[in-house]
Design a protein around this nucleic acid. Sequence first.
RNA 1: GGGACUGUGGGGUAGCUUGGUCCAUCCUUCGGGGUUCGGGACUCCGAGACGCCAGUUCAAAUCUGGCCAGUCCCA
Length: 505
Amino acid sequence: MVRRVSTRPRAPPGTGGATPFPPGRWRRPPMVDLPPKETQFIDWYLAVVEAADLSDKRYPVKGMNVWTRYGMRARRNLDAVLVREIEATGSEAVEFPALIPQTEFAKEKDHIKGFDAQVYWVTRGGLSELDVPLVLRPTSETAMYPIFALWVRSHQDLPLTVYQIVNTFRYETKTTRPFVRIREIHFFEEHTCQLDEAGATERVRSNLAAFAKMATAFALPYVALRRPEWDKFAGAYYSVAFDTPVGASRTLQIGSVHHYRENFSVPYGIRYEAADGSAKFAHQTTFGLSERLLGAIVAVHGDQKGAVFPSSIAPYEVVVVPIPSADAPDVPERAAAEVASRLRAAGRRVFLDEGPDRPGAKYFRWELRGVPLRLDVGRREAEAGTATAVDRYGRKGPVALASLAADVARRLEEFDRTLAERARAAFTASFARASTLDELAGSTKIRVVAWCGQEECGHRIEAALDGALLGTPEEALPIDAGPLDRCVACGRPDGLRWALAAHPL
RNA sequence: GGGACUGUGGGGUAGCUUGGUCCAUCCUUCGGGGUUCGGGACUCCGAGACGCCAGUUCAAAUCUGGCCAGUCCCA
């Protein structure tokens, strides 16, 4: 594509006009209103992803979309948070190959059963049929564990704690949606080997704590739920998943942590010699995240004007918009370039929008794209040595050039605080208890129910809601649900625990 | 796996029932010119599409069949 160069005079060198960012344009969003988020959530979501230029879904393979420049900026910022938090817990990066021999893939019976229907196969190399067909990884247990068996020999090799961020592939048969249900997944996966079950349990706990920090950076409220037996990860001893509410009674799973016990280490021979000389199998855990996090950020924070990004992952934290002036043509441009330059020097991600569009058109575009803070610089500001700040929620005020970095930092903090408060309020409002099965039907809330733990009752709950029993909370309930008195399905008072039920997106 | 529906420029659409008035409508987008520029500017000129293959017919976006792709519902 040919990049258009502005016909407008550029700021001369030495005034901060030189930009380290490509001056190229972003694709223009269509000038149409978004569908209402409240009543047409899916349509709204798809329109925002498209209009905010996060992903190009026109790639001719279902469920495989193109990451745009703007979307990549968000993804890199998001990944940086994941890397920062997981490495803070001692995990180290590795990278395994994408292809797995069928013979290795088939070793853990439940695992292969769980993924059977959704793996891509490579059966030919050039013109020859392969003797052993290769699986394109849907997840990497079966790629890593034969090698883990070589790495782990002694208790001194444990714990083994590694992660990788790679693409995985799943032949999804249902309707695909950008970031949320796709066939090529941008996947973060941590795999660990521990001395024993207690060690693995401790790693699960550590992962829950790490995820709490990540979610804070994204301002995503969530519940950590232990999935019911019938919905745990294929091959797991148990699974804890993170769900965040999006839309009426809908939830999006944004991550999961699994305790494998010895389920994989036995078939893959991940065995070590303990201090007392005995041979033992490692206990394993995994922790998985994906670009669903980005989808959740769009879904949770976005509004009728478009996306809203927390500053931690916003492609640009600040966009600077010069307001042209007929009687002083160069003045606003130079002042705006100066503002952008100073903010970059202070480490901010800044876009200087020198494009030929009118200011109003730029405002709409950057609101659609979810930039936290806009700085307008016109003749008035240029003469006063200020800029006019407007955050994504429309709060407006002057910032002085002399205290620019500090003022911008303060406004971004305030923006992030508001973003988090709004998300928290919406989160809390999305739960409600159901004391009878009748209350579940047609529910527009995520339902908190008392459950006896029996599978039959679980399925009755799912049938009544026409949704899924998400699981039992690992931590405190998000709302005060009242007394835990009797099972919502069978009415018995034994073995009770809280459970959440909703419609997974 | 079973059923229903839908494929028209980059995005969204009108036209399809009753074949011809369609070298296909409108919005948006894209390229160029001019006037503009503090919340989606106006104007002039220009660009861009009937999913694929066959069939019926003087004539197919429109009817028929197959295929491909997608959406929804049910198992």
